[in-house]
Design a protein around this nucleic acid. Structure first.
Length: 424
RNA sequence: GGAGAGGUGGCCGAGAGGUCGAAGGCACGCCCCUGCUAAGGGCGCAUACGAGCUUAAACUUGUAUCGAGGGUUCGAAUCCCUCCCUCUCCGCCA
């Protein structure tokens, strides 16, 4: 949510910044709603003040045992108009709120202007792209030949966009999550958290999934709960409606969770393999920081995610998303894209964003500043990393001519010393 | 699932239709005393929004907010209804 004060003071400026990300702010509507709100609110408050002061007089008169019938008749006539006004005010405020809650965040000044993925800015590359003396297979072929990846059975059990992992491949998947968690807790200073995978609507609103992206979520109707699309939702909402002590900042959390996405609107995209699933595991990094430290924190968080790829020996690049490609709540986003030989391209494996106060304002997540006043925090998060896609990257990048796959050094002790995956 | 108790400021906790945005305490901030690591005294200390003043802040003032929503009333933290959440006991259960 944007700051309504900023909208009032610099509506044209905000509209211009939003236009760079392809969002047309209906400034006329905002102005009209604001004008209405102001008129109604002023009048309502006048009447309320009158009612309150008169009622106070009644109280005083009654305490003295005086007759109050005249004064009571006078105040009684206020009732009807006041009720009308209060209803109107509520309606306008709801409308304003609905209007505000679907406006995306304003991009940071350094975000390159652009319309789509094609306009993203490559920041740096790491690692060299592997050369193969044989025809590369994709992870689906590799996984099926290894006997550990079974999409047909997954489809029988649940449907399309689910996967079934078996044997060493399932173990490698677990090993990856363990390795990521251990690295972030032991080397990067994050606190491990275990969180609910079902959340309420308030939490979804807090991080910006609601109201705009309700269709993308799995909804448990009987209990009115939602499956989390990312650990960002439960973890960031830890600080919803909280006032964090200044000395406790920054808060750094890491959490390994499954993520559930309906992928409505992506029919036909990445239908083969594990790239786009209704359910996937992710290790998520979340930082709750002082507003002056958020960009510094984002660079660090990005580095923490990169470390995982470096340790795994996977080639990747960092891309700064352009205005048109950023998510709804983000002010600045770096994507980490891992090299996938079978697709001969880089594919997103992590997305690291600074939301500034956008989520904090929705959540009323604050800290007490040096003056003792509550002030909105800044929130950051990033994948560190998407486990399924990391598995895909390892299979494809580490494949051998005979269809076996070498296990990265750092994962071997999580694999009971296994060095290579082979068809049994 | 059954029975009961409860949700009040950053925290604890009183209030049980009128002068209550809410006693008292803790924490915090400023000042004083003392002088040494602990204590005494004074003052201040919720948030959001509106209006005034202003470059702005500060300030003044109004309104709303005592889990949420509705109702009764001239007036609701307080009475009534619905919902949500927490706790205790019983049942079931990984």
């Amino acid at each position: 949510m944007l700051d309504i004060q900023t909208l009032r003071n610099d509506l044209a400026g905000v509209a211009a910044r939003l236009a760079t990300r392809g969002y047309t702010l209906d400034t006329a509507k905002f102005e009209q709603l604001e004008a209405e709100r102001k008129t109604i609110q002023t009048r309502t408050q006048e009447l309320q003040a009158k009612r309150n002061s008169t009622s106070k007089l009644i109280g005083q008169a009654k305490a003295k045992g005086a007759d109050t019938s005249a004064i009571m008749a006078e105040v009684a006539t206020l009732g009807y108009e006041l009720k009308q006004l209060e209803e109107q005010l509520e309606r306008v405020q709801h409308e304003l709120n609905a209007f505000l809650s679907v406006i995306p965040n304003t991009p940071h000044a350094s975000v390159p202007a652009g319309k789509s993925e094609a306009d993203n800015l490559e920041v740096r590359k790491f690692g060299s792209i592997p050369k193969f003396a044989f025809e590369v297979k994709d992870h689906v072929s590799l996984g099926e030949e290894l006997g550990g990846l079974d999409f047909d059975t997954a489809a029988k059990i649940a449907g399309a966009r689910f996967s079934l992992l078996k044997g060493p491949l399932a173990r490698l998947h677990r090993a990856l999550a363990q390795f990521m968690l251990d690295t972030h807790t032991e080397q990067h200073g994050y606190m491990e958290t275990y969180v609910p995978y079902l959340v309420n609507a308030d939490s979804m609103r807090g991080t910006g999934q609601f109201p705009k992206f309700e269709d993308d979520q799995f909804h448990i109707c009987a209990d009115n709960l939602y499956l989390i699309p990312t650990a960002e939702v439960p973890v960031t909402n830890i600080v919803r409606d909280e006032i964090v002590a200044l000395e406790d900042l920054p808060l750094k959390f890491v959490s390994h969770t499954p993520c559930f996405r309906r992928e409505a609107g992506s029919y036909g995209r990445d239908t083969r393999g594990m790239i786009r699933q209704h359910q996937f595991d992710k290790v998520e990094l979340v930082q709750i920081v002082h507003p002056e430290k958020s960009y510094e924190g984002l660079e660090q968080l990005l580095g923490h995610a990169e470390t995982i790829l470096q340790k795994l020996g996977l080639p990747y690049r960092i891309v700064k998303l352009c205005t048109g490609d950023m998510g709804f709540s983000a002010a600045l986003t770096y994507d980490i894209e891992v090299w996938l030989p079978a697709q001969n391209t880089y594919r997103e494996i992590s997305s690291c964003s600074n939301f500034e106060a956008f989520q904090a304002r929705r959540m009323q997540a604050r800290f007490r500043n040096a003056q003792g006043k509550p002030e909105l925090l800044h929130t950051l998060n990033g994948s560190g990393l998407a486990v399924g896609r990391t598995l895909v990257a390892i299979l494809e990048n580490n494949q051998q001519a005979d269809g076996s796959v070498t296990i990265p050094e750092v994962l071997r002790h999580y694999m009971g010393g296994m060095e290579i995956l082979r068809a049994s």
